[in-house]
Computed example of a mutant assay.
Amino acid sequence: MTYRLNFPDDVFDTYKQLPDRARRDLAVCLVDAQGDPLGCSEPYGHDDGTVRTVARGHVTAVILIGRDTLVLTVLAIAYAGLA
């Protein structure tokens, strides 16, 4: 089953400001996670199976897996690379 992707406006603004490569890396992570959120992510702190992280290259995102709604919500984005 495929999860829908949700970006709150402020997080999407962060996404738009990332360098091209970081946007691509994050997009790959999120598309993969839509098909298998648990298999394509790592626990964020305590593994509750709901709040997870995805990462590739120099970009990381915290996602919320809505199992009942089949929605992945991007809660935060961190970029540790050079612009």
Score class of each variant (00 low, 15 high):
Gln17Leu: 14
Ala22Thr: 11
Asp32Gly: 08
Asp20Ile: 12
Thr2Glu: 14
Asp10Gln: 14
Val31Trp: 07
Ala27Ser: 12
Thr69Gln: 04
Val71Asp: 00
Phe12Thr: 00
Ala22Asn: 07
Ala80Val: 13
Ile63Ser: 02
Tyr79Trp: 08
Tyr79Phe: 15
Gly39Tyr: 00
Asp48Met: 03
Leu26Phe: 03
Tyr15Cys: 01
Ala55Thr: 15
Asp10Ile: 02
Cys40Gly: 02
Val28Leu: 08
Lys16Ile: 04
Thr2Leu: 14
Thr53Ser: 06
Asp13Gly: 06
Leu72His: 01
Asp32Pro: 00
Arg4Gly: 09
Pro8Lys: 09
Leu82Lys: 14
Leu70Phe: 03
Leu64Tyr: 14
Lys16Ser: 14
Pro37Thr: 10
Leu64Cys: 04
Phe7Ser: 03
Gln17Trp: 03
Val28Ser: 07
Gly39Phe: 01
Tyr79Ile: 05
Ala61Cys: 05
Leu72Gly: 01
Arg56Ile: 06
Pro37Ile: 10
Asp48His: 04
Arg56Pro: 05
Ala22Gln: 04
Asp13Leu: 13
Ala61Pro: 09
Gly81Ala: 10
Leu75Phe: 02
Leu18Lys: 11
Gly39Arg: 06
Arg67Ala: 06
Pro37Arg: 06
Arg67Pro: 00
Arg56Ala: 13
Pro8Met: 06
Asp36Arg: 14
Met1Ile: 06
Val59His: 08
Asp68Ser: 13
Asp68Cys: 03
Leu70Arg: 13
Asp9Leu: 02
Ala78Ser: 15
Thr14Tyr: 06
Arg4Ser: 07
Ala33Gly: 10
Ile65Pro: 00
Leu5Asp: 06
Ser41Asp: 10
Leu18Val: 06
Lys16Asn: 14
Gly57Asp: 04
Pro19His: 09
Leu30Pro: 01
Gly81Trp: 01
Ile63Phe: 03
Arg23Ala: 07
Arg24Pro: 02
Ser41Gly: 10
Asp20Gln: 13
Thr2Asp: 11
Arg21Trp: 09
Leu70Thr: 12
Val59Tyr: 08
Asp47Lys: 04
Arg23Leu: 08
Asp10Met: 03
Ile65Gln: 00
Pro37Val: 11
Ala33Lys: 11
Glu42Phe: 03
Thr50Ile: 12
Tyr44His: 15
Asp10Cys: 04
Asp47Met: 05
Pro8Leu: 08
Val31Met: 13
Val54Asn: 05
Thr53Asp: 05
Pro19Cys: 05
Ala27Met: 10
Pro8Arg: 08
Ala22Ser: 13
Cys40Ala: 15
Arg67Ser: 10
Asp9Lys: 08
Val62Ser: 05
Arg24Met: 10
Ala83Thr: 03
Val62Phe: 04
Leu5Tyr: 05
Glu42Ile: 15
Asp20Tyr: 01
Leu30Asp: 01
Leu64Lys: 13
Leu75Ser: 08
Asp10His: 15
